[in-house]
């Protein structure tokens, strides 16, 4: 029973180490990257990623872009109402787009996980909360840490079940 407890706790801790590896080290797959083009509309206070040919809807259900790890991402950024910015966490990219112009942003998705992009040009009251998400799949930090959470909970509950005498 002691062994089971240590095993479960160990897996729980691994759940934390995995996202550390994922988020801290830049890992680029060796092959020539596939190019992923995304049209990204910005409007107070959200981003709308459009599929090619898709019409612009007023309410974005979610400003979320999903690409695969290692892809070359080409964003065509436009502003609908007023000037907006685009700051991408973890890449240091920071651009501003004026209404009527198109700014092209290119980068390689070097790390799996979720990275937020934020408006960097004051655009109104909720400007600091104008946030979109770039999810680079497979989202290893999320899956491994979720597994970590489950095993951690098992380890704590297991402490009361398996280590009765020693508790």
């Amino acid at each position: 029973m002691r062994g089971a407890w240590f095993l479960v706790s160990g897996i729980g801790l691994l759940g934390f180490i995995a996202p550390v590896v994922g988020l801290v080290f830049r890992l680029t797959p060796g092959r020539t990257p596939v190019v992923r083009e995304v049209e990204l509309l910005s409007q107070a206070f959200h981003y709308d990623p459009l599929q090619p040919g898709e019409a612009h809807t007023r309410h974005a259900l979610g400003g979320r872009i999903e690409v695969r790890w290692g892809e070359r991402v080409v964003l065509h950024l436009r502003a609908v109402d007023t000037a907006h910015g685009f700051y991408l966490d973890g890449y240091g990219i920071n651009r501003v787009v004026q209404p009527g112009e198109e700014v092209t942003i290119e980068f390689i998705a070097i790390r799996p996980g979720k990275f937020r992009f934020r408006c960097s040009e004051t655009c109104g009251p909720l400007h600091p909360f104008m946030i979109g998400e770039l999810v680079v799949t497979p989202n290893l930090p999320f899956y491994s840490s979720a597994l970590g959470t489950i095993f951690l909970a098992l380890a704590v509950v297991g402490r009361f079940w398996w280590l009765k005498g020693e508790a």
């Binding site: 934390f16 996202p19 550390v20 988020l23 801290v24 700051y87 966490d89 973890g90 996980g113 979720k114 990275f115 937020r116 934020r118 960097s120 930090p141 840490s145 970590g148 959470t149 951690l152 909970a153 704590v156």
Partner: peptide
Amino acid sequence: WTPYIPELVPLLQLPVLWLGLV
């Protein structure tokens, strides 16, 4: 405006949430 280590914030949030859970 300069965000500090925004991509590493989840690494601070995880241990905090886990501490709460335990």
